[in-house]
């Protein structure tokens, strides 16, 4: 058996290299998010946002941009035979789940590094909330990475895969979004970041991440068979 860590780094490095070379997912996600901010500017007819409105706009936009990346996550494995190659190799299949979830997590972090400052620039009066917001973003990214990888690996084997992924993923991330918006709302409130129930929401986010990473890890074997 090839050690899991070697397989994990091989698959992750392959994915990141291909993304860097083709730039298929990330620029599209960033562009999508930025344009969505502009649409919200006019849809809400507001030039500055705070509190629940700011939190809602930010998370709705990030979630829908994330769906673009989720949809593309396994396309190369499906169309270019990566699933078969990985199943023929002497590796633990969980390495594929871990590598793909890490790749998606990386995309989301990079997306947010670009897009959240733009959001602050467009709508926020001060950048003071960004530091604590980073903790919420990271925990939410982990949850989206876990569920997104799980759903995407199944959706890619279906017809209408671009439809099926978002369809199933959206209700699944509702609890994650409840916690993320709940934590962000006081952070983005007028008059500087507040920390009302910040710890509770971070705990909910962590619990969500933990449960779905475990579920993904446990069931992923069943998803690779024909």
């Amino acid at each position: 058996m090839t050690p899991s860590r070697a397989a994990f780094t091989a698959i992750l490095a392959k994915d990141l290299r291909a993304e860097l070379r083709t730039l298929q997912s990330l620029p599209a996600m960033a562009l999508f998010a930025t344009t969505t901010f502009v649409i919200f500017r006019f849809g809400l007819d507001r030039t500055s946002l705070s509190g629940s409105l700011a939190s809602g706009v930010l998370w709705a936009t990030l979630l829908f941009a994330a769906l673009l990346g989720v949809n593309r996550l396994f396309v190369a494995e499906r169309e270019e035979g990566g699933f078969d190659a990985i199943r023929l190799a002497p590796i633990d299949r969980s390495a594929l789940f871990a590598a793909k979830a890490t790749a998606l997590f990386t995309y989301l972090v990079v997306l947010e590094l670009v897009v959240v400052p733009i959001f602050a620039l467009f709508f926020l009066d001060s950048a003071a909330a960004l530091a604590p917001l980073a903790a919420v973003l990271l925990l939410a990214d982990l949850g989206i990475a876990a569920t997104g990888t799980l759903i995407s690996s199944m959706a890619v084997h279906s017809r209408a895969r671009d439809l099926l992924g978002p369809l199933v993923l959206l209700p699944l991330v509702v609890p994650l979004m409840i916690a993320a918006t709940g934590a962000s709302e006081p952070l983005l409130a007028v008059g500087g970041p507040g920390y009302h129930r910040f710890g509770t929401w971070l705990a909910v986010l962590s619990l969500y991440d933990l449960i779905f990473l475990l579920v993904g890890w446990a069931v992923f074997d069943f998803l690779l068979e024909d």
């Binding site: 392959k14 290299r17 070379r21 190369a76 270019e80 078969d84 023929l88």
Partner: peptide
């Protein structure tokens, strides 16, 4: 070793 219809190669690498 499997040599099928698909080359099992990533197009972008």
């Amino acid at each position: 070793g499997l040599l099928g219809h698909e080359p099992l190669l990533y197009r972008d690498l």
